[in-house]
Amino acid sequence: MDWASISRALHSSAPLPSPSPLFDPHRLDAAAAGDIDAEFPDPALIEQARKLPLHRFDWYKEVPNQPWPVHTPEDFDHTTLLSPSDPIPWEDWDTKAPVAHRVLHFSAAEIQHIHNLAQPSSTDPQVSKHDALLAHIWTRINLARQLPASTTTYLNLTFGLRPRLSLPQNFLGSPIMITAIPTILSSSSSSSPPPLFQTASTIRTHLQAFTRSAIAAVLHDAAYEVSPQRLWRAFLGRKHVLQTTWVGAGATEVHFIGGSASPKLRFVKPEMGGDGLVLVIEGLGENEGHWTANGADVMVYLEKGAMERLESDEGLWGGGVV
């Protein structure tokens, strides 16, 4: 936004704006629970943090057939210095397999239809249109991958911490977390996937687990990690979907020229790649109001064979959705 506003000013010979980005990591530190300057962490907070649905894949743990060598620092001993973790499941991701990219546009009416189908019973948490759309895409991707029955798959869902921790919008950095939402494919999943409301409710329930106090416990835990960069909170490949969203980020509102003759934004594209990446963004258009007023674009990256099956899936556009 700051870049675009400066560009518009330069283009129109107007006075330059004064951007005010905030670089203050201590604000994030202050959101941590307990005393992060103590010699040892609080065991109760550590326990609370590690009960949350978060992957702890360890870059330092060597496994067979990993695509590139791992160089674990010699000073680290997994049994003493490092916190508990899991090996990276490289067997689930063929990094050399060709990956296809598609942009799936869902109209406002289609999203409303999916949302209607995803409404849970009165005893379940209410789901948003975002929850419903993600549940739909995740379900169809699981079908397209043709995984065996009883396989556990994960939606690695990225969510922001600014609203949850009352951080200002100009706070520099990327304060995010990624929760690992599991589902177990049934024996009949290829012909009868789980009801949409069930998957959408699972997404909503997992997001609701990350209360302010829960996030504060995770920040406390992270403050005591000897080597936090070794932990991967998400993964790709046939058993994973890594989802992020630009909804509400203002990406479709960025204009670099300005003025009445300014050309309309025509397309927004992320620079990503990898089997299982999914990004959701508002559709472009003149309608105002809810973020789905102009529909939504869902950018999907999948192994080529799975993408072909996804494209031919009648249920992707409403047929067979339950």
Rank of each mutant, 00 (worst) to 15 (best):
L16D: 04
T183Y: 06
G320N: 10
D124C: 08
G276M: 04
K264Q: 12
S5T: 15
F197E: 10
Y60R: 06
E253M: 14
P19F: 09
E271M: 13
T79Q: 10
F40H: 15
E314T: 09
S13H: 14
F267W: 10
H136Y: 01
R145L: 06
E271Y: 14
A31Q: 03
F106I: 02
L279T: 10
R238C: 12
R140Y: 02
P148Q: 01
G248Q: 09
V298K: 00
N116S: 15
G276N: 04
S18Q: 15
F197T: 07
P15D: 00
V254R: 10
R309V: 04
R238G: 09
T95I: 15
I88E: 00
F197W: 10
G283T: 03
I178N: 03
T202C: 07
F210C: 09
D35F: 10
A214C: 05
L231M: 13
N287E: 11
F267K: 11
T80M: 04
Q229R: 13
R233Y: 01
F171P: 07
V268A: 05
M272N: 14
A296E: 00
G276K: 04
S166F: 05
A234L: 13
L242S: 12
P67I: 11
A261Y: 06
E110Y: 08
E39T: 15
P270D: 13
D86H: 12
P15F: 00
I46D: 07
D35R: 08
H136M: 05
A214Y: 01
G318L: 06
P64Q: 06
H240K: 10
N156W: 03
S190N: 10
T292I: 04
E314R: 13
I111S: 03
G285D: 06
K129T: 12
T72S: 02
A38M: 11
I203F: 02
